[in-house]
Design a protein around this nucleic acid. Structure first.
Lengths: 199, 199
DNA sequence: TGCGTAGGCCAACAAGCGTTGACATTACTC
DNA sequence: GAGTAATGTCAACGCTTGTTGGCCTACGCA
């Protein structure tokens, strides 16, 4: 509990590097992979530890519990673009393109979706992401502020549905579709949900 | 293994009723509920048995294993309408309405979606439902037969995404939307995915 | 009335889980 | 070079899981 425990600051960069940082990130990487592949219950601490080539007890020491590990493994930042700087009739295409990139750049989103489907904490995590990240962006383009939550939810349904069928359930035709086809199909849908007058 | 083991046929209806049929259906009902609420791993045989007021070993005797129980519990029939008898510009509304009814009439769909998100067998079950039930219906209305799988997959993405956000993740705005609002928003989307010229 | 058998319960099993604490080892400071 | 704290290993705990086999009970037919 000392202030500066034992960081070996390599003078020059000024960045403190501990030996444990390597294992820490190894554990997190293994955890993300396992959570994405197996969901919360079947992603065991023992398996994650084996993937990271360390002892299961280290996971506990670093992250306290399995829940703590999950929380640390998926600190999801969607990095959504600023829609005020996007031509108004291109927000749909922009969002779909961005989301497809997110899903394919790593497995974090697959992990949080798989876990969110069966685990209460995971579902709350997704609710938080929706509320803190998607809602504000929707507010930038929706005409009527009162309709923002509903319109954002419609977008979430469409985008998460794509992710579900393509990356989780792996329905063959959903996997086979090319990225530009998906953008061309879903872009107008998202555009309509966000900006069109309510039906 | 005898031909007619011990069925007490109540003469008149001609229907054979065993005493065990009651428990059998009780187990299946409890299983559906648990699978829908907890997913595959956390829905334990012990909990299901307790809900059905019988011993866990009875579940094994009746269904062989946990996988067998799941297979028996969700024998999913979407009862999709015959789209050839529906006005061509109303297939979207019809499908969305029908799906919403399915999701809210019992928990079978929630169960199969929750399980499909984390369990390989569950995912294959969903692939089978898509292939055997949704694809043929899409074939009835799609202009180009070659595009049927892709268009059906887009519909599945939209409809399953709605179910995911509304019944599994329970995003508050998705839960708050009324059925007729959902139909009005998603109907045109599904209609476009099925019948509009490809973008 | 007696008997076979289907229906049900109980106790236990092996395996796997998250988690814990004691012990060994490495690296860094003085 | 000694001492201390960080890093890692080992073995075990208590618990839950799916699954099994033996035993009891009560119905339905003769």
């Amino acid at each position: 509990m000392t202030g500066s425990p034992s960081t070996s600051t390599d003078s020059g960069t000024g960045k403190a590097t501990r030996r444990s940082d390597a294992t820490r990130t190894a554990i997190l990487a293994a955890a993300r992979e396992r959570f994405a592949a197996d969901g919360y219950e079947r992603a065991t601490i023992r398996a994650i530890a084996k993937d990271a080539h360390i002892d299961p007890s280290m996971v506990m020491r670093y992250f306290g519990s399995k829940e703590g590990l999950f929380a640390a493994a998926v600190a999801l930042d969607l990095r959504l673009p600023d829609l005020t700087r996007v031509p108004r009739d291109e927000v749909g295409l922009t969002l779909v393109t961005h989301f497809l990139g997110l899903w394919e750049e790593n497995e974090e989103l697959t992990a949080v979706l798989r876990v969110g489907a069966t685990n209460q904490a995971g579902a709350e995590r997704m609710q938080g992401i929706f509320r803190d990240q998607l809602l504000p962006v929707a507010r930038q383009v929706c005409p009527d502020p009162e309709q923002v939550p509903a319109r954002a939810a419609l977008c979430a349904a469409q985008l998460l549905g794509l992710a579900l069928t393509r990356y989780v359930l792996r329905l063959p035709p959903a996997v086979a579709l090319h990225r530009d086809e998906l953008v061309a199909w879903l872009g107008p849908t998202v555009q309509r949900y966000l900006t069109a007058p309510s039906p």
